[in-house]
């Protein structure tokens, strides 16, 4: 670069110069973002496609003549069962919400002593919990089913909620968040006269709140999308959650059903996307907080 050109920006405030490197990075990021969003765009577009377009081969990515017929088909398909679509919606929302709230409360409560108190067997307990992280959910499905059956919870909300609360991921995450909080801060509180409970509610809770966003997103998405648990734990239609209900619709794939399924998938995904958008800014905050020292 010539000397003349170099001097120009230094005259005023610092002028932000875009380097070739930045252009490359942004280009790559943009491509990545587009690729990531393709399935969602395709899903939305498909939900509005008329039958003719649904059957096109090769398939067209974007809808030409958008229609809402798929949604009325869905309503029709659903109308043929005794249980209204809204019931599945409610089941999913109810179970997911309780699981999210419960997981947050239980994980935080359990993580605090594991992260900040020394007691005999602490490491053992933590290691057991962490090893549970490594066991696939499918492995424990049969024993879990047996336990639930013997408790008499089959086909109840308990079966969908209680086992989900025992997930170790949340505890692991919360422990990782509580651990970097300086011990001196808790000791200062102790010197100020705070009891353990006061320390927990006045110091720990406010500081880990941002981490709840991350935990909420993960827990909500995994519970909302869970197909397997309701499949084996529920029997009656009225206990089904959305993913399970969706399968009922897409069973016996006719063209009309395919449209309804696409519409159903779209509707099922909306809450997940909303939850993500709502909590996303807190996730960023989580990251800034986790870099906090002292």
């Amino acid at each position: 670069m010539s000397a003349k050109k170099r001097r120009a920006p230094s005259k005023g405030k610092a002028v932000q110069r875009i380097t070739t490197g930045q252009i490359v990075i942004y280009a790559i990021l943009t491509i990545g973002a587009v690729i990531m969003s393709l399935p969602i765009v395709y899903m939305i577009s498909t939900a509005f496609k008329p039958a003719t377009e649904l059957m096109l081969y090769p398939p067209r990515f974007l809808v030409r003549v958008p229609t809402t017929k798929n949604f009325s088909d869905l309503a029709l398909a659903m109308g043929s069962t005794d249980t209204p679509f809204i019931r599945y919606m409610f089941n999913s929302a109810f179970v997911s919400t309780i699981v999210v709230v419960g997981t947050i409360i239980l994980s935080t409560l359990a993580a605090y002593p594991l992260a900040k108190h020394n007691f005999p067997g602490r490491n053992f307990i933590f290691n057991v919990i962490v090893s549970a992280l490594m066991i696939s959910g499918h492995v424990t499905m049969i024993p879990r089913y047996l336990v639930i059956r013997n408790t008499g919870w089959i086909d109840t909300y308990y079966a969908l909620i209680i086992p989900a609360l025992a997930g170790s991921y949340g505890l692991f995450l919360m422990k990782q968040f509580i651990e970097p909080i300086p011990n001196e801060m808790l000791e200062s509180a102790k010197m100020d006269g705070a009891s353990e409970w006061k320390i927990f509610t006045n110091i720990i809770l406010p500081l880990v709140k941002p981490a709840w966003a991350t935990l909420s997103i993960f827990t909500f998405i995994s519970t909302w999308n869970d197909f397997f648990t309701p499949l084996i734990m529920t029997k009656s239609d009225s206990m089904k959650t959305l993913p399970l209900a969706m399968r009922t619709i897409s069973d016996g794939m006719t063209i009309a059903r395919m449209g309804a399924a696409a519409a159903g998938t779209f509707l099922t995904t909306i809450p997940v996307i909303l939850v993500f958008i709502f909590f996303q800014r807190y996730v960023v905050e989580t990251m800034t907080y986790s870099g906090m020292k002292g």
Binding site: P182, S188, M191, D192, G193, I203, M292, K293, G294
Partner: peptide
């Protein structure tokens, strides 16, 4: 500790953020 009448300042200050 709270009943000892002690005021303490830590190296990292340990303020409640």
């Amino acid at each position: 500790p709270k009943d000892r009448g002690i005021g303490i300042v830590f190296q990292n200050y340990a303020l409640y953020p």
